[in-house]
Design a protein around this nucleic acid. Structure first.
Lengths: 405, 405
DNA sequence: AGAATTAGTATGTGTTCTGAACTATATGGG
DNA sequence: CCCATATAGTTCAGAACACATACTAATTCT
């Protein structure tokens, strides 16, 4: 995520680096379906037509780019050849979460081509068993893609925990009960022929990026994504890039202190956001204590109570919105953010939580976060898989030279 | 500070960029007095001896680097020629604060060669008048440097407010009463012959960087710097770089919400850290309400009361430490930081505030911030000027090619 | 049909890194 | 004292690449 370096340990620049950079630059200026011509690219990048010509011919070799007929009919002069990213190339996205598995394929145009979401009870289940079930889902998706002629370049797997992407290890996923789970072998087998491999990521981070690329984030640019799953997680997107922090934990808004006199949190601290806005906390405050059924069922019951106008349910959700506002204000001040996107159960509760959240923001930091900078995710259970797949797509687009001899 | 870009608006890479990068790379591996030889540099950077030779000869031309005798006497083989940054080159640093002006010169070895701090009452004073007084101080410092044979490459001016460095404008400095003050002309005249010019910066950001380069920060790498001046400001250093945020406000820890039921803040919000840990808040809680004297005098009175064991004073400072801990925890969680450096009045109160802060950290986030990751600044009133000068030095070292034909 | 206009390609030049050969300067052993 | 050995630094040919210029290609306007 970051390329900071003392300076002395930086890699030396070689002449060939220039070409790598320019390949990515040209590729970046070929939008999904912009139908840019070589001449357009030369104008927009500042490269000469000669250089663009040579760069484009290499990009065509990689298969990432395709020539798509002529452009500009009716005007004077020779028409240019339209160039576009090849929609028949894509990446796999997958998510393991506490109560479902999800897989899908996103193509270079950003379209979700195939996907499947399967309910599952993964809490406390062995990584091997979960991965085996995931592999079956992935297999179906991969063959569907192959049948449609879509070639997969790479992939991403999002999990609700802290990961080490370089080693392919889930360091800890409390809600799954995983610790130091080495998935590197399994990742390598998911899409064996993909040149860029399958990379692990954090679920909240991936969902935050999905929002950037395929949701509300594009308009916002920099924002805090808050994911209300079993815990309250989050991801930080700044300047259209994910900010993971020095140790990869950044965006963990669930353990911001919002109530100094509040109750003990599972993290060992006190008054954390999660203790007042986590699923369990909201359900308890709403009086929905039917412990036997699943969390999903109880959330549905909450929804029903809200729609019926149940006062206790409404005040429970409003309380969560109030405290969410405090956490968002702290984030806005510390990191200079001015927008939020809410996902997971917060998105489902949008109607009831939004007014309370806005009131809280106005009260604690008038002007810091405008009301039109509070968005609710519409990506549902496909958010993390789209983000993971999207990240794989970006990796490929950033390193087209890896596909050349 | 950031070089993010959509991709399409990036500048094209040219062959010459490689040399620029490698010039900076080689320069970066010539430590202050490391006495590296060309061969050492080749080994540490990965460049060939031939390239290093050519790059070094250009760096010698810029004057940033000097050959300093031979190295490695007593061993076999031809001894190498030692290379070091020329300590006779430096940069000007200056600070305008509410109650003082400070200027100084930092050389390429990081030493503070000359400096002067003058008390002043700048609150509400016109920018022109303040700058005129500052210019006199700078003039003395510049001639002292010239007399000692030190050449100035650039400079930095830190102010307690939000700045636009590219235009040389102080957008707003509430504690000075400045708004949209255009200092660009004045900045250009401060050190007319300096090739890199004089650049505006925020006081807290500069102090945070001074801590990184010349204080506790080097050992920490990533940390939150909290500056207790008239207000409570801060700067965020991550991966040995300042993080300014999308709009340049990042690190503003003074307006993190630490007491949801707390009192109104001047920012329009409620329960901000500044309302319980700002100078005025601490003095009021300590019962030091002698409004006639200066803030500095009242802070001295507070110090005396603390040393005398005054219970009200002690509990006022402990309260500030408690709330400071809450803000630090929120920052630690959101941005994944694990260290803090405290400056300004917090540094002066270190003895009394430290235990309360540590207790608060333990209570709200055990393990997030270790007790040896809480440091107190020792740079005093030279912090911001050293940071501003240091930033100017880095700018020069990052762009040595600007000094060539 | 020919002029004008725009797209894209071919060719020569300058910059810069690399690798290998070479020169320079020290130590240590016979 | 001289030569082998080791290390530092320079010189020179070769390859990669972007650039500038000149060229060919394809279309519309008159």
């Amino acid at each position: 995520m970051r390329e900071h370096d003392g300076g002395a340990t930086m890699a030396p620049g070689r002449v060939g680096d220039v070409r790598r950079r320019n390949l990515a630059l040209v590729l970046g200026s070929i939008g999904p379906e912009s139908l840019a011509t070589r001449a357009d690219i030369a104008a927009s990048t500042g490269l000469t037509k000669a250089s663009v010509s040579s760069l484009v011919s290499e990009l065509l070799e990689t298969g990432l780019v395709a020539e798509v007929g002529l452009t500009r009919a009716g005007e004077r002069g020779r028409p240019g050849v339209g160039l576009a990213l090849d929609a028949q190339r894509g990446a796999l996205g997958a998510e393991v979460n506490v109560d479902y598995l999800a897989v899908g394929v996103v193509d270079l145009h950003g379209a979700l081509r195939f996907h499947e979401v399967a309910e599952a009870v993964n809490r406390g289940r062995e990584p091997e068993a979960v991965v085996a079930e995931l592999s079956r889902l992935v297999g179906r998706c991969v063959s569907a893609a192959a049948d449609a002629g879509v070639t997969l370049l790479g992939g991403g797997l999002a999990v609700p925990g802290l990961v080490d992407p370089s080693r392919g290890v889930v360091l800890s996923a409390p809600n799954l009960g995983w610790r130091d789970a080495d998935l590197s072998a399994a990742l390598a087998e998911l899409v064996p022929e993909a040149p860029f491999g399958v990379v692990l990521s954090n679920e909240a981070d991936s969902a935050a990026l999905a929002e950037l690329w395929y949701g509300h984030g594009a308009a916002l640019g920099s924002y805090l994504y808050v994911s209300g799953e079993v815990g309250v997680g989050g991801g930080l997107v700044m300047g259209s890039e994910l900010f993971a922090g020095p140790g990869g934990h950044a965006g963990e808004v669930g353990h911001v202190v919002v109530e100094p006199t509040g109750s003990q949190c599972s993290c060992g601290g006190r008054g954390c956001l999660e203790t007042v806005a986590g699923q369990e906390a909201i359900l308890a405050a709403a009086g929905i204590t039917n412990g036997g059924s699943t969390t999903a069922a109880r959330m549905a019951a909450l929804q029903a109570a809200l729609e019926a106008g149940d006062a206790q349910a409404i005040s429970a959700v409003e309380r969560a919105g109030h405290y969410l506002g405090i956490a968002v204000v702290s984030a806005a001040r510390l990191i200079d953010l001015s927008a939020v996107v809410l996902g997971g159960h917060f998105a489902a509760l949008a109607t009831w939580i939004r007014p309370a959240l806005l009131a809280s923001l106005r009260s604690f930091a008038p002007g810091a976060v405008a009301s039109d900078a509070v968005a609710f995710s519409e990506l549902g259970t496909t958010a993390a898989l789209r983000g993971a797949a999207g990240a794989a797509v970006r990796r490929a687009l950033a390193a087209p030279y890896a596909l050349l001899g």
